[in-house]
Design a protein around this nucleic acid. Structure first.
Lengths: 239, 239
DNA sequence: GTCTTGTTTGACCATTTGGTCAGAAATTCC
DNA sequence: GGAATTTCTGACCAAATGGTCAAACAAGAC
């Protein structure tokens, strides 16, 4: 799975003063006089490989569970070489988190205040479910981080995410107030959508243990149908 | 939080042959000729302390993230002393998992085929939500384990849990077939209930980051209300 | 080609970690 | 009280882990 790390390649490398260490890549952090040099092709290629491998390693075992050796192997290089590109395990971890975060938040940003409420919410549910299916590692990466107290994501939760959710909560509340939706707490509706969709990525082993390995497509289709039914009609038949 | 480990205290300690190592506690494993000695008060007290502390440590950082030193500190004793009672970190971890598992499965077992469907499902939802509130560490312990591939719980998922879920799925399917519930996939309804309720324990940092630390009671009340509304009526108003 | 810069590696190091062990201290049994 | 057993601890160990470094090697610029 080739990713699009390219546009995200910045400040990952140690810069400091060192003579042999390259580079400050384009993007940020040019406060001091060091003139940023352009990233070489090799740098871009290797950082991509590293980030790519690191996502699956970190998603599998969390930050503490991952070893630098594993990370290097996943990137197909030696440990010192990996540490040439990312000065520490933590730096790498943060870089991966940062990258994945954007994708993670995107669907919620798409929620359109002017659209039809039911349609908007179903779309959001489907988009999140599709992310669980196509990029389960993203979801597991965050699940690990949050489950263990979000030591490095805490700031984001309090900042960007909080704003975004507040904003969308207002939209949902409006839909309730105008009678377009039943009266529910907007925040809990959002949690509800997160929980039900991410469950399929985060608890995939459990899901497949109960439903069988082979029926992955069917699993996600059935999940979408069930969620749609519940969201639109609830469990009780309308007489 | 004092727990009821007592009835679970069994075979935790190394037994083998050793002269100074005690004990095979009551419960199981008496296959060989070694006559089981009764657990002393000290053993019971200390094993309780250890298991008690271990639950919160493992829930916080997962198996790999927890160190034996932390575990010992949480139990208020030295590392070698802890290892006197549980011969390895893994043994201790499995013991904690085993214990917590029972509580975890209990609510689903209560689901009554002869009860009113809506009431049964709401009760189950409330019971699980209450568990998330009162025993979040239980939930996080499993979340960590499953998220990381359930290396030690895999057998349970394929065995006991699978049976239990199959059994309850039949009940739910029957409710659907007789028109008492809208037609939904029973498995996904169960996942839905797990996901939405456990979310509040597993992602507590996120939830409190967005809703505020102080309103814990309110959070769970609102969650229950929202879930009830959605489950019973869905989001769309009935005209 | 050669000089400069960027990349890669084997060997190495300090710390942390899971776990052991011999014996000291406490407890129980008679 | 004294012997036998159980509980506890400081000192220790081997393996794993995050990270460093000097030097070898490759790429570009001219």
């Amino acid at each position: 799975m080739r990713l699009l790390w390219e546009k995200w390649v910045h400040v990952f490398m140690d810069l400091g003063d060192s003579r042999s260490r390259p580079v400050q890549l384009q993007g940020q952090g040019q406060e001091d006089g060091v003139k940023p040099r352009k990233a070489t092709r090799i740098q871009i290629r290797n950082q991509e490989r590293i980030l790519d491998g690191a996502l699956s390693v970190f998603a599998k075992t969390g930050f503490r569970g991952a070893t630098v050796d594993e990370l290097a192997k996943a990137a197909g290089m030696t440990k010192p070489n990996l540490l040439y590109y990312f000065k520490s395990k933590k730096t790498l971890y943060v870089a991966v988190l940062e990258f994945v975060l954007e994708r993670w938040l995107e669907p919620l940003e798409q929620l359109d205040p002017d659209g039809d409420p039911a349609e908007q919410i179903l779309n959001y549910m489907r988009a999140k479910l599709s992310m669980s299916k196509e990029r389960p590692e993203d979801s597991r990466l965050f699940a690990n981080e949050i489950l263990n107290g979000a030591p490095l994501l805490g700031a984001v939760l309090q900042g960007h995410l909080k704003e975004l959710v507040e904003q969308k909560a207002i939209v949902i509340r409006h839909w309730c107030d105008t009678g377009q939706l039943n009266r529910v707490d907007p925040y809990h509706l959002i949690f509800f959508l997160w929980a039900t969709t991410q469950h399929y990525a985060d608890f995939e082993v459990q899901v497949t243990a109960l439903l069988g390995q082979d029926a992955r497509d069917k699993t996600y289709d059935d999940a979408a149908d069930t969620l749609e039914t519940i969201l639109m009609q609830g469990l009780l038949p309308r007489k």
